[in-house]
Design a protein around this nucleic acid. Structure first.
Lengths: 185, 185
DNA sequence: GGATACATGTAAGATGTTACATGATTGT
DNA sequence: ACAATCATGTAACATCTTACATGTATCC
């Protein structure tokens, strides 16, 4: 149940389609939609060594005609692929939507290239259900707050959170429909 | 620039209006809208001791007629109040909206009871501006992705993020108007 | 030749997680 | 009496941040 660091899964998932160096991965983190991952060498290189020691990735042998710079490329191992798939196949729990949204989105982003479309759709179905329940609970708490106190930033901050949850549930429903249309029929 | 752990500010901000014990604070984390903070004793009690050592909070002397249980209440010190206010008065930067949304929302939640309403309104103005810029950049990247690839979960995951940012910017604008109406005139 | 980007790494320190330990009080 | 909850804490471990160190290749 206790999850490995999401950084390790992010690295593994990025390496899977194409061998990459630590520097490549750092660039991906700074230049793409994965900005919230740290690009600091102090997090990435140690994480790569952990993954290597665990047997999820392995260094590619260098060849003469390679990039003259000393970049060390890593590729995924069968064990790493299996770990990735197991991680993606986990059910979406209430705790996930409350405490681990970032990890859920990372999982979702990697799904289509690693698990059957049906799994992705099921993920969205579970996500929508759990998020909607949590959002409804939170909405009720918000209304209770509102009835007790006047307008102030604490209430607005909470509203910010609740609206986000409702929007996320709606996003999941819409995305599921899109994927169902795209794959079904 | 490097921020203390948000947990420490969360504890300080909660203790300010009313002295509380570690156990009280843990309950707040599990039963209110602050669910994403860990309620584990291994994080809270050490954090309280750090705050005490730093002089932001101090233990209340126990009295005979107190709760018979050995709860140790902490109250905020003048130094702690100042630290809280300094933290709340920081400007909202681009990096904040990209990397530290959780901290921003915590700051916002504590604003109305600790800084002038005008500061809260300025916070929302800055937040909206920075978030709107970041959202627009991200939206452009999303459209570029869409034009290059077909529908898949990676694109949808990114869309999830971009829509969130746009909503957050809109929330800030709406909240600012509400607060301006409530305080102005 | 010097600045900049490429590329990898280490060391110290802060923080947080998990699991365990301890004992008091309350409810049944 | 027993279980559950109240209440605080420690120890081991994992991870991440910050700052520093090192050297190469490319551009002007």
């Amino acid at each position: 149940m206790k999850s490995k660091s999401t950084l390790e899964y992010a690295l593994t998932g990025l390496i899977k389609p194409k061998p990459q160096s630590g520097y490549d991965l750092r660039k991906t983190f700074t230049t793409t939609g994965m900005r919230h991952y740290s690009d600091s060498p102090g997090s990435i290189y140690p994480a790569l060594r952990r993954l290597e020691k665990r047997g999820w990735i392995e260094p590619l042998p260098r060849r003469e005609d390679d990039d003259p710079r000393k970049r060390q490329l890593f590729s995924i191992t069968p064990k790493g692929q299996q770990a990735l798939i197991d991680w993606l196949n986990q059910p979406v729990t209430r705790d996930d939507v409350i405490f681990r949204m970032g990890e859920l989105m990372l999982r979702f982003a990697f799904m289509d290239s690693n698990v059957p479309r049906a799994t992705t759709i099921q993920f969205l179905r579970d996500f929508e259900r759990e998020m909607a329940i949590y959002a409804a609970e939170s909405r009720a708490k918000l209304e209770e707050m509102r009835s007790k106190t006047g307008l102030h930033s604490g209430v607005l901050a909470y509203e910010f959170g609740v609206e986000g949850m409702e929007r996320q549930a709606a996003w999941a429903g819409r995305s599921r429909e899109l994927l169902e249309k795209a794959s079904g029929s």
